[in-house]
Design a protein around this nucleic acid. Structure first.
Lengths: 239, 239
DNA sequence: TCAAAAGTGTTCTATATACACCCATGA
DNA sequence: TCATGGGTGTATATAGAACACTTTTGA
């Protein structure tokens, strides 16, 4: 750690990029902004921005999230640091090191379009065409990470409103993983894990217009899932 | 993304910090360097350094690893990005954003002490007292991450030399997790996972001076472990 | 011939899976 | 009364844990 100040004013910009995910109408959606300037003008990109001098990356990410979504209170939302992307050529203009985050939202309010972005909206994950910069990679990493964490953490409730049915919780798993799950077995697994969910006494909600009203649950205090809820064998997932 | 150049010359330094782990005499060890200057002069710290203008964080980490360990070829070693630490006050001198990595080494050559560091050596993980900066936290995060990845990836072979016995592989798990495992069951699990290890035909090695010589194995091609090799229930591990 | 370490086999139990079935509600 | 979604029960297969046992080597 000699020569500490030698590179102190090298032109490194530090930014955050956010993969904001939600579930709308049974499909995974991403919050994207349309770029107004070169490079990649007119292309979709992940929302993000500079880390300010007195901010941590997490603080900057939460600020950007609030700006882009227009939500009053983003303090309770799940923000997960993915990794940092630092390849020298990832931004053609200058050296930009970007700390990427995944954010999980329960309901999907229409984005303000406020903040920096020219235009912001929710797009289905599958049709989120080629994005600007290396954002395709970041988005794929976010999806993979979230999918993996559903297996061994209680993260799924972050996609749900404060009160939800077990059917809605199951839909989170099915949507993120892209596989169907056996409802009775899913139910047993979830209820057998202490602290995953806790029932709201007496409450019930009609989900599809028809059918028996479903009991409502809240997120419990647990964070880890023991034993894990493994996705149906995909044979050799990436690490 | 307006005002792109506004903060371009804000004094952000980007560094890498490495938690270099190995197993020596059945105990987890960390590579540490002694700081020669303030702040934290005389204290142990994780090796690390600045990301150069034309490097990615991964490249910088590998360069630092080679400098600190004095190894010729660090290209095959496992380097894993942990996360980025960016709290404004983490270095009292200036704004330093650090990308942390965990590196896993098979055998433990005595470090050169070359490169920047005044002195470098291996210390047992448990007696790696209070480190400089937020390096205690980084080291703990590295341990947790490696422990978790042993469960569902073939990462354990990264701690082993090119040819190893199943007993040595088991010792990796036991050392990192701090728990004893049933040898017959461990053996079956490992051999039942295709591509985890492959036997070196005819080769055998005497391990403890006495006893039956153990068959030798090489790391296989697989990266993921299906089904996972879960550590004995610790009830509610962190996410 | 004993201790130590490798390797094999067997039993018991917990968990996962795949269903069949019943319940409550709106159309 | 039928379709729809919620909730319960149960048989079977698979995987994990515990432990007894055999094999091969050096002292």
């Amino acid at each position: 750690m000699q020569g500490y100040d030698k590179y102190a004013f090298e032109p490194f910009a530090v930014t955050v990029d956010l993969a904001v995910l939600t579930i709308r109408a049974g499909a995974l959606h991403v919050l994207l902004v349309e770029r107004g300037q070169e490079p990649y003008a007119g292309r979709w990109a992940l929302p993000g921005g500079f880390v300010l001098p007195d901010e941590s990356a997490e603080t900057a990410a939460r600020r950007e999230l609030a700006e882009e979504t227009g939500l009053d209170d983003v303090s309770g939302l799940h923000l997960e640091q993915l990794r940092t992307y630092s390849e020298p050529g990832r931004d053609p203009r200058m050296r930009v090191v970007s700390v990427a985050f995944a954010a999980l939202l329960p309901d999907a309010p229409e984005p303000h379009g406020g903040g920096d972005a020219a235009q912001a909206c929710w797009l289905p994950y599958d049709s989120a065409g080629p994005l600007a910069f290396d954002h395709d990679r970041i988005l794929a990493d976010a999806h993979e990470r979230v999918g993996a964490k559903l297996e061994y953490t209680c993260l799924a409730t972050a996609f749900c409103p404060p009160e939800f049915t077990l059917g809605e919780l199951q839909q989170v798993y099915e949507t993120v993983w892209g596989t169907a799950l056996d409802r009775p077995n899913f139910r047993r697994k979830v209820l057998a894990t202490p602290g995953f969910v806790e029932q709201v006494p007496g409450a019930a909600r009609l989900t599809g217009g028809r059918g028996k009203p479903a009991a409502l649950y809240r997120a419990g205090g647990a964070t880890a899932l023991h034993p894990p809820l493994l996705r149906p064998t995909t044979e050799g997932r990436p690490s």
